[in-house]
Amino acid sequence: EESVKIVRLVKNKEPLGATIRRDEHSGAVVVARIMRGGAADRSGLVHVGDELREVNGIAVLHKRPDEISQILAQSQGSITLKIIPATQE
């Protein structure tokens, strides 16, 4: 059973501070990098390897990473992410 986590981040004009990529094996959209000091890093709630399912209620599974980045870039104020946390080894 996948544990889905709802994360709310507050982002002003600054970038979210995370990059995403598509996992070639599973097809999932995952967090590739977290930039120090960005909104994602400061929240402490988003981690490399987390699978991104939704951004502000928009399912991202069938979107290209550049489309998802665009949605994230255009979002201001509160951003709600639905993520499946990376499995902690």
Rank of each mutant, 00 (worst) to 15 (best):
V46L: 15
D50L: 00
R22S: 08
L81G: 05
K13F: 09
G17V: 08
L72P: 02
A18L: 15
N12E: 10
R42H: 06
S26M: 04
I71K: 03
N56E: 06
V55P: 01
M35E: 15
I34E: 02
V31G: 00
V46H: 01
T87C: 15
E2D: 15
I68G: 03
H47R: 09
Q76P: 10
E54D: 03
H47I: 00
K82W: 00
A18D: 00
G49C: 01
H47F: 05
R36F: 04
K11C: 14
L16F: 15
R36Y: 05
I58M: 12
S26V: 03
I84E: 05
D41A: 10
A32Y: 07
K63P: 01
D66F: 11
V31L: 07
R53K: 14
H47M: 06
I83G: 03
K11N: 14
P65S: 12
I20K: 00
I71G: 04
G57W: 00
Q88L: 10
R21E: 15
S78Q: 12
E54I: 00
V4S: 04
I79C: 10
V55R: 01
S69H: 13
A40L: 13
V48C: 07
V30S: 07
T80Q: 08
L9F: 10
Q70I: 06
I68P: 02
E24A: 12
E51G: 02
G44N: 08
S75F: 09
E89Y: 10
I71N: 04
V48E: 14
D66V: 10
V30P: 00
G27P: 03
L72R: 02
K11M: 15
A86I: 09
V30C: 08
G38M: 08
V30Y: 14
R53M: 12
R22L: 12
R22P: 04
L52G: 01
N12D: 12
I84M: 08
L9S: 05
A39N: 07
M35N: 14
T87R: 12
K13R: 13
V10R: 10
I68R: 00
S78Y: 10
G38I: 00
E89A: 12
S69V: 11
T80W: 08
I84K: 15
S75I: 12
M35L: 14
V31S: 01
G77K: 09
E51L: 05
R21I: 14
P65I: 15
G49H: 04
L52N: 01
E67M: 05
I58R: 09
V46G: 01
V10I: 12
I20F: 15
I6M: 03
M35V: 14
L9A: 04
